[in-house]
Write a protein that binds this DNA or RNA. Structure first.
Lengths: 221, 221
DNA sequence: AGTCATAGATACAAGCTTGTATCTATGGGG
DNA sequence: CCCCATAGATACAAGCTTGTATCTATGACT
């Protein structure tokens, strides 16, 4: 089959497919899988699957048990709060910098476009794609700050976030419009340079969607 | 060794020990265990352990995989919110009934005693025992309503609650005093017959400790 | 005291998986 | 076009577990 640049290796395909199964929730935490099972699914031999498993183990998505199988590592119950707290920190920090340096036109345009897209997806009740546009909107906020490091770090939260949003975000389609409204409000605060209002609205927004990041164990309470 | 009434069977011992390991978090969700491993730990043969595993499977604490082992079923990420919502519902309902019928003296005494106990444990920084006294306090609220069914149902949330509170409640010892303060406030509202204030305070209390029950997927938002 | 039933110990067979070694196919470089 | 290296396929051995059958010990009842 025709493939651009270089055909991905069997090991990489096995890795990508398995990772997607985990992140999408099709293989939930606690599942017990095997090299043979994935090999059959991806239609390769066990050798590249073995390599993929090792990689996923290093990413703490799989726990390998010799001669017994691999367990999909569950999302630790407390991690939802940890990820949320980091998201809050990164986005607030981004809003403060944007208040200082302004919001570049292309970023503004991009957010507008994402908001329009969200409206359309809310109307179509497309929860999956809405979640993608939701995530892209928040990521754009962090990237708009110009802090490349923050942008990169934020992206690594994406995988962990996906595993939680699959179960946390079980919205009725009507809620999608509310979420789009809240995104509008966030953009307005950015444009006003009001990072305090942004922080407050963001906290409400994330709390309603994902629960409170200020759960037990936090030091700032 | 001397034992009262009847010595518990090996199967029951294996069951109780394994369940405690799971609820306490020593065997977290995603752990892969075996009959032999537990048999060695409890010092019995595999036969009673096998029976215990079947029981734990029916309670959805273990997932058995023939010839491979048993996986400790992880706490589903969304379940924290579900359990919290039920707790809220039961405790608010109890507060409303108590507002109507009053708080019996013995229940009042019991709660006072538990609060004193919590103060002492906060001072001793005994997080484990504090959590027990915390749980007993909330359970007493539900039992004080006189609704035996609610009391029984609330107790079944106990197991699920424990698996979450181990990770959610990672408090610094200082926070224990704050929790005791909040329990004082809850009792005061009960005594005042102010179920609305009780509901509001309870929401704040549980949200701070366990995160918001009104996460995505709720219908009342 | 004897008998019977049941819980549990134990040993061996069988299932499921990984680990390892060998072979093959393919692509790149000379 | 040939050779070499590497990715991957495949087959068999080995590890870990459960499933099953048999035996034993203990307690209860007669």
């Amino acid at each position: 089959m025709a493939d651009p640049a270089k055909r991905p290796s069997a090991a990489h395909t096995a890795y990508a497919v398995t990772k997607e199964l985990i992140l999408s929730g099709e293989l939930p935490g606690g599942s017990l899988i095997s090299e043979g099972e994935i090999a059959e699914r991806v239609r390769v031999s066990r050798t590249p699957v073995r390599e993929a498993f090792l990689r996923l183990e290093s990413e703490e998505l799989l726990a390998l048990h010799p001669k017994r199988g691999a367990v999909v590592v569950p999302v630790p119950p407390g991690e939802a709060a940890d990820v949320l707290e980091l998201r809050l920190a990164l986005e607030r920090s981004a809003a403060e910098r944007i208040a200082r340096i302004g919001l570049r036109g292309d970023h503004h345009e991009r957010m507008r476009e994402l908001l329009r897209r969200q409206r359309a997806l809310a109307e179509a009740a497309d929860i999956g794609r809405f979640a993608d546009a939701d995530e892209a909107f928040h990521r754009c906020i962090v990237e708009a700050s110009g802090n490349r490091l923050a942008g990169r770090f934020y992206a690594t939260l994406g995988d962990r976030q996906r595993r939680m949003s699959i179960t946390a975000l079980r919205p009725r389609p009507e809620r999608l419009s509310l979420l789009a409204d809240e995104h509008e409000a966030l953009l307005r605060h950015l444009l006003d340079g009001d990072s305090a209002a942004f922080a407050s609205a963001l906290l409400g927004h994330l709390t309603a969607t994902h629960g409170s990041p200020y759960a037990a164990g936090r030091d700032d309470r």
